[in-house]
Design a protein around this nucleic acid. Sequence first.
DNA 1: GCGCATCCCCCTCGAAGGAGGGATGAAGAC
DNA 2: GTCTTCATCCCTCCTTCGAGGGGGATGCGC
Lengths: 211, 211
Amino acid sequence: MSTPPEVRILVVDDHYIVRVGLVALINTEPGLKVVGEADGGEQAVKLFQALRPDLVLMDLRMPGTSGHEATRLIRQLAAAARVLMLSAFDGDEDIHAALEAGAQGYVLKSATGEDLIPAIHAVAAGRRWIPREVATRLKSRQTYEQLTAREIDVLNQLARGLANKEIADKLGISEYTTKDHLKSILAKLRVADRTQAVTAALQRGIIRLSP
Amino acid sequence: MSTPPEVRILVVDDHYIVRVGLVALINTEPGLKVVGEADGGEQAVKLFQALRPDLVLMDLRMPGTSGHEATRLIRQLAAAARVLMLSAFDGDEDIHAALEAGAQGYVLKSATGEDLIPAIHAVAAGRRWIPREVATRLKSRQTYEQLTAREIDVLNQLARGLANKEIADKLGISEYTTKDHLKSILAKLRVADRTQAVTAALQRGIIRLSP
DNA sequence: GCGCATCCCCCTCGAAGGAGGGATGAAGAC
DNA sequence: GTCTTCATCCCTCCTTCGAGGGGGATGCGC
């Protein structure tokens, strides 16, 4: 009679305290074991190559290489890699980007042990794991159109408070073109003005505030 | 020869995982002990009354009663209460509000055990604990003026993307007065337009995005 | 061919923002 | 008591900017 093999886990989060919590939570669970910890995306990729864990528990928003970039890189190295994304945010765009990058699961940081442990087992076993509330957000996302790369460029400048002319200079286009992009942005996000566009984009996780 | 008495700690954070991390970190340290956990501000006040811990380790941003509200309430109950604020954010306003509410220390969530444990000992012993990078942010804050309550009302409506007339109706004042407040806001935050005002206020932690 | 992203231009009108001018009431200094 | 300060409120004039309505052009992928 053989015991089932342990699930070897790589924990990735930029906050030391969160890593301690995850490790404590996981290592008290029979059948699960943390084999490595990374404090950022670059280190996550390196440790993945060195350790080849059965599952990566990855924070989404980190300074430097983000969680979904790291996930993409890891899945290029090993298409069968299993990634469970962990995030404090439930913005539509965050969730979509995580799954797009190849994560098989998405768990919110407000999760308790009873939420997290089954998610780990499920993803390690090759199944997908999307909590109901997350799935709902993902569906609601489809109700508005996808922004183009250029529109997101403009949006980022908008969030810095630049005027149309300034954005035009920065992006090397004419003010007219900037206004055209802005028109598309307002239409796609279904908002009335630039301020609403910025707050809507921040809430949905399309852009972030630059420090 | 008597051993020094244990420091009894109440841990407050809305994220279960973070609480696990903090408890694991603290309980492995001799002389420190977690005697209670709260997942929000209301529960924190209740548990403080029941447990009378030597120190409260409090998350700043929580849904419902925030960390600084809870701190204020706790210090009304016991002026000698010791609170160490824990925050993921280093916005000037967050730091100032925490100290204003009566916290004796402020530690960032990116802190490691080596950062956190001395902070706990210091605050429990009645000393103040402000990391250098936090103190720097606090000083830079003094370089711009304090907003009035009404200006912050207007700012919150601005962040929702409302026009001056809409803000005026909402707050029950004339559009002219709204524009006056806006002028003060722009001057005090030293920005050129409403969009910059919103992003600046978000970065400094003066306002938050409403979900 | 088509669709789509990107780019450029014109016009119009209302909103935003910058400059003034005041009035009131509460708080604190003297 | 007065005087000052400050937050709050209201108003006018003026200029620029933002936003929405058109019209096109190019290049790319399918």
